[in-house]
């Protein structure tokens, strides 16, 4: 089921009530169970997300290398708090417990792709590329 839910998340950017009902019909698993599973996992969202999902790492290794500044900078640049989506539906920002790039901290994932050794300048460039 996890792979099924992942497919839905990838295709629509979130797991909607409708898609849960459809999956329930297909599998015979009650809606409540599927909803319970969906909300358990941090990468499955029940509300629409932006085109670019940014997952910024806040592990101790990233923290020691300045992730707090990077998070604050991103929040200011995108004018949202972590957990939110920009009004133009382009970016969603989430904090991740650890993305396993501890030797290249601070780091983040955008739609699953890692960006490492982040600086404010690097973030400016990456966001500019996403916007164009």
């Amino acid at each position: 089921m996890l792979n099924e839910l992942r497919k839905i998340q990838k295709k629509h950017g979130y797991v909607s009530e409708d898609s849960i009902k459809k999956l329930s019909k297909k599998t015979g698993i009650p809606v409540s169970i599927i909803y319970g599973v969906t909300t358990f996992y941090a990468k499955l969202h029940t509300k629409p997300t932006g085109k670019y999902i940014i997952e910024i790492c806040d592990s101790p290794s990233c923290y020691l290398n300045g992730s707090l500044d990077i998070i604050k900078y991103l929040e200011r640049k995108l004018d949202i708090k972590s957990g939110q989506t920009t009004q133009d539906k382009k970016f969603s920002l989430f904090i991740d417990s650890c993305i396993g790039c501890c030797d290249e901290a601070p780091a983040m994932l955008i739609n699953g792709k890692p960006y490492t050794k982040l600086t404010k300048e690097k973030i400016d460039k990456i966001l500019k590329k996403c916007k164009s």
Binding site: S59, P60, S61, S97, C98, G100, C101, C102
Partner: peptide, 8 residues
């Protein structure tokens, strides 16, 4: 599922 922070 290498989730322990600091592990890679």
């Amino acid at each position: 599922d290498e989730g322990e922070p600091g592990t890679f």
